[in-house]
Design a protein around this nucleic acid. Structure first.
Lengths: 221, 221
DNA sequence: CGTGAATTTGACTGACATCAACTCAGGTGG
DNA sequence: CCACCTGAGTTGATGTCAGTCAAATTCACG
């Protein structure tokens, strides 16, 4: 339940109803899609366990990774506006989600003003997150992008009670590069540079942040 | 009222109430902010007349133009998640908006399921729009970005009943460059190239699209 | 161990940025 | 009415950061 960060004003009775909606759990194996671009939208999903990437694909070859989702985050909000998903959500490891049928959620929102308000904040936060990515893609150097990426993961793990300075990258260099608008090689070179500066260690997948401030200063510049 | 594209199922009585909320009009002179980053969020705004740009500013020098809004589009949704705006909305010409006090909108949404559903689709569409911008910034060449930008404007003017092939750019080259992650000079060079190819004419501000297909093919590549 | 995928590293290239000069339109004041 | 100014836009010369191509290395897994 904490995934939705429900405000305290919601009553136990309300929670029961929400619990009811959230009851259906789904397991997704590593590499498998939770949903695919083109499929009919019908539910949101709350990540319970594991990690996902969401991939936007416009027509032909062009693919863009829109974000990486970890436990407690919501998948599928981009589908609300249209009959069909325009993104795919792929599990980066064996994962588990709760399905939230959208029509049932909507009727519940009408009855629970505080849940409605919470839901709107959640969508708005997604918009805000994307603004940050646009800033990153629009005006940061390769080094700044990777630093911002690491700091973002760091903050999110910290918010979930994990170490903000030591975590495992669940995605490949290719995924990171695609997300940050860089090539694999550039991402790799930046990591090597950070390592040489003693800002991080333990690559490739296992990351220890040694000098958080250096990374922050780099982004702030 | 057509700005919100209200579904037909809403009754006249409902409309009266919405009309009530939307009654307050505000005029904004060219170059003036409708709201500024840091101000307390309290309302959404529906653009009635004119054009705006929304600028995201993180801390110090970094500014990123997030989008350009024209009549019929909604401003301020990024503020819902937080006490204060993180964007500024600046009028690109003398403009007029309707203020939509957010708390009143929220209570109305609870009462009108179809309006609620419409509002969610609107936020989702904004998320989807930003995905497209991320694709553009993450993996398109300078030429493709400018072409995509022109085609996007073209479609939006067409949807409003204006000519899709002849319109005026309300924003400067600097604004366009910032939005597309390019410099002024690069934007200018791309326009010149398009002009030389006879794909467009009538620069600088007045744009006639002569070969829409060429632009589309360029993006689709 | 051996095989293929992921990652790193190096040499070279190219697209866009940077720096700088120039053009043009609009507004102002003499 | 025109000289002047200012800011937007264009164009050219040069520089650089990240992409491309290629090879080496490490890692995961049978």
């Amino acid at each position: 339940m904490q995934e939705l960060c429900l405000p305290a004003v919601i009553t136990d009775q309300d929670l029961d109803r929400l619990e009811n909606i959230l009851s259906k759990r789904i397991r997704i194996a590593r590499g498998e899609p939770l949903y695919r671009a083109g499929e009919v939208f019908s539910s949101l999903f709350a990540v319970r366990l594991g990690h996902f990437k969401t991939v936007y694909s416009e027509g032909h070859a062009t693919k863009q990774i829109i974000g990486f989702q970890m436990s407690g985050e919501i998948l599928g909000m981009e589908g609300i506006s249209r009959p069909r998903h325009k993104c795919s959500a792929i599990a980066l490891e064996d994962s588990e989600v709760c399905e939230i049928p959208y029509t049932r959620l909507e009727s519940l929102l009408s009855e629970l003003p505080s849940l409605q308000s919470h839901f709107h904040r959640m969508m708005s936060r997604e918009i805000d997150r994307e603004h940050q990515v646009m800033l990153l893609l629009g005006s940061m150097s390769a080094d700044q992008r990777v630093a911002a990426f690491l700091l973002n993961l760091s903050r999110r793990y910290e918010a979930r009670g994990f170490s903000p300075l030591h975590f495992v990258l669940r995605m490949t260099r290719e995924d990171i590069g695609n997300y940050l608008g860089l090539t694999i090689e550039s991402v790799s070179r930046v990591f090597s540079r950070f390592k040489k500066n003693d800002w991080i260690e333990g690559l490739p997948r296992d990351v220890k942040i040694l000098d958080r401030k250096a990374l922050e200063d780099l982004c702030a510049y």
